[in-house]
Write a protein that binds this DNA or RNA. Structure first.
Lengths: 254, 254
DNA sequence: CGCGCCGTTGAGCCCGTTCAAAAAGTGTGG
DNA sequence: CCACACTTTTTGAACGGGCTCAACGGCGCG
């Protein structure tokens, strides 16, 4: 259950991959998957806190996150950073429009142990010429990321601290939910996110995040214990803060 | 010069379009442009304040903005809205990943008189199958939008009122600049944006926007007079607030 | 010239910050 | 299993940036 203990590794054949249905290569036919697999250059296993790619460095690979949590962020200076998004299993990392020769506009770091499937970005152009469906799918995923970023903008720009935080929790709750075949009965998810990260994601101090979480907890809306988040009644909480479940598009289904 | 007086209209043939080099169809060969033109369903001329498409309504067209200013926004409720982005000539509007059958995740409204080229989104899939380069270009543009949204997130999350506002002004300044073949000598641009819109874009009250603009003006950094913005020394201002000119990718060049 | 939108200014309040410190995990090596 | 270091969470007190409420001035347009 925990993402931090023994770490899951992708199977030898993409065909049998359990996150494929969420991931970039879902719409391919069986024979096409074998072709696509040739483009994969390997797996990567990383401990918590590893930098997967760094702001400003050349963009050489794109990754499909197979297991674990990753966060994407921008450093403004020594003291300030903005977390742009959290990536969950099945999500694509490191694609920024340049098929080759570009640099990363932000950084990505693992919060837990993670395993990644690596695809050299130099090959993408060829791959998409051969399989237009893949290109369309990539476009769709990029547009979904956009919709999510816009949702986050509305949060940071126009919502109170409580609503921003609750929004983030609900978003992650539902996103994680929709990729679990058998969700837990008590509405709890694995949640390896520190309060400081929450603050960096929603534009608040860790201290104020703490106070606000306390408030949500005392009101019975949420519970956080040893890296587990429980939201007893997510729909009611969503109602309270104006969370639109519909904005969480199934990130990776065409 | 003004965008609000007599309004420019696209030429009959896309081949001769002056914004094509910025726009979606730039990478096509001459013969391909004629083919692509068949997909265009017409032009649209709209007065200031027109809703081009509306949050939640079915997504039937994508648009290339030929002239004028447009802003994209989300309404949270009666009192609160978040402006996500401003669109300038050459920018693509209304593409959200669904080639057909989806709904708009946000709204778009004209600030000035605008003219638009309309493409039915139902045709996009066929179009991109026929011309893979177009698909790749679309992906690239969507990814650029993403990078911009991420930049905005960092602003709203981690910057002061002054820096947010200056950032927005500089961004629009440079974006408009890079599509003017002959920029004005005095570093001024046409700027039909109200202070309330600035507030809705950077997450502040119109009142506080006013005070902050006053401060920037009194310090000599900017000047705003009758819908004209002047930034005497944009590079120095960028230096002051940590603006990275590099993040303004030439929105539409592959 | 009168109406509506936009910009400007003042006064007071409040949400979220800053600074400071202690308590409660978490992981490591002996 | 404990000791130690380090990270994360929690709480308090005081400050301040940005908000709210209120009013007035200016400009464009019918």
């Amino acid at each position: 259950m925990s993402t931090t203990s023994t770490i899951a590794v992708p199977p030898a054949k993409c065909l049998h991959c359990k996150v494929r249905k969420l991931a970039l290569f879902q719409p391919l036919m069986e024979t096409e998957i074998h072709a696509a697999q040739k483009y994969k250059s390997g797996n990567q296993l990383l401990p918590p806190g590893s930098v997967i790619y760094h702001q400003g460095h050349p963009n050489e690979n794109v990754y499909t996150l197979f297991s674990g949590w990753v966060y994407l962020y921008k450093d403004l200076d020594e003291k300030r950073r903005q977390i742009l998004d959290f990536a969950l299993p099945g999500d694509l990392l490191g694609f920024h429009g340049d098929m080759e020769g570009g640099t990363h506009p932000h950084s990505a770091q693992s919060l837990t142990s993670v395993s990644l499937c690596v695809f050299p970005s130099t090959n993408l152009l060829r791959l998409f010429r051969k399989h237009p469906k893949l290109g369309i799918r990539l476009t769709w995923m990029t547009a979904s990321d956009n919709a999510l970023a816009h949702e986050h903008l509305a949060s940071l720009g126009r919502r109170s601290a409580r609503d921003r935080i609750a929004h983030l929790l609900l978003e992650l709750f539902y996103r994680l939910r929709q990729r679990q075949p058998e969700p837990t009965e008590d509405n709890s998810i694995d949640f390896p996110v520190t309060q400081e990260m929450i603050g960096d994601a929603v534009g608040l101090t860790a201290i104020h995040v703490n106070r606000t979480l306390m408030e949500l907890r005392r009101a019975g809306w949420i519970e956080i214990k040893s890296k587990t988040l429980t939201i007893p009644d997510p729909d009611a909480l969503g109602e309270l803060i104006g969370f639109n479940r519909h904005t969480i598009t199934p990130r990776a289904m065409i």
